[in-house]
Amino acid sequence: MSDEQVGTILAIVTLQMSMVGEGTPVFLARNEEEQQKVAGYLSKILDANVHDLENGSLILVKH
């Protein structure tokens, strides 16, 4: 039941470096378009879900 387990944050794609801390790989994007593109690639590479925190950061979570 993969969708019932607690997720693990694999990576963060952000527009504002100041918003995120350490501990998880962070990718800085220059604009929203690039952010979506990078998150999309990472999602395919990591087989992970992309979730939007709606504060300028997208997180990639493996459920």
Partner: peptide, 16 residues
């Protein structure tokens, strides 16, 4: 926003 809704029920957050 990013939350997928089925009528009034929130299902999940879709970022892309």
């Amino acid at each position: 926003g990013a939350i997928l809704m089925v009528d009034e029920i929130g299902i999940m957050n879709v970022g892309l």
